[in-house]
């Protein structure tokens, strides 16, 4: 098992933290993981992306040419990464703000109205967790249980009351995608 994932969008959308949560879930399932962020000025508002690799074998390069899965949160990232998804791979994207949707037919394309769903939840901070739910539905990389265990391990105690909200967001992401 090896899943090579790119998550890309604007800085502030929760790109890096979504990747981090995924990486921790991999750790919970005793898998090998690498989390390689773009760490530039993107974090302050430009495009940001993170490469996450989860594998049952040791991982060589943290830098990749192509990806099994791309989670795309803006048009710039779609333009950049659509061609880099392996044939048979998956693009998960939020159509909000996308005016040129993916055109490839050799991959699975999953539109997820995550922003709409997050607004309906009255908490736009759940946005990335809704997308994570969609990702986990379409790519069986790690279990939801592992994600929750990862959250419990990494979140400070004072934020643990938010875990049920995150769990709910994952469920919504699974149901709307």
């Amino acid at each position: 098992m090896k899943e090579e994932i790119i998550i890309a969008g604007f800085g502030g959308q929760g790109v890096l933290s979504m990747g981090k949560i995924l990486a921790y879930a991999g750790l919970m399932e005793n898998l090998e993981v690498t989390w390689m962020p773009s760490y530039g000025p993107e974090q302050r508002g430009g495009t940001a992306n993170v490469t996450v690799i989860i594998s049952d074998k040791s991982i060589s390069s943290p830098v990749l040419d192509t990806y099994d899965t791309a989670v795309i949160l803006n048009q710039q990232s779609l333009d950049k990464f659509e061609a880099k998804v392996k044939p048979g791979g998956t693009i998960i994207y939020d159509p909000a703000g996308i005016h040129r949707p993916p055109t490839r037919t050799d991959i699975t394309v999953v539109p997820v109205d995550a922003m709409t769903a997050a607004i309906e939840m009255n908490n736009t901070k759940t946005y990335n967790m809704i997308l994570l739910g969609a990702l986990l539905k379409h790519r069986k990389i790690v279990s939801t249980d592992a994600v929750i265990r990862g959250l419990k391990k990494t979140l400070p105690e004072r934020h643990h009351h938010l875990i049920p909200l995150n769990e709910k967001a994952i469920e919504i992401g699974m149901s709307i995608s």
Binding site: E32, T34, M36, P37, P62
Partner: peptide
């Protein structure tokens, strides 16, 4: 280098 400084792994 910046890669090994910034990346997370086990």
């Amino acid at each position: 280098d910046g890669i090994v400084g910034q990346m997370m792994e086990k």
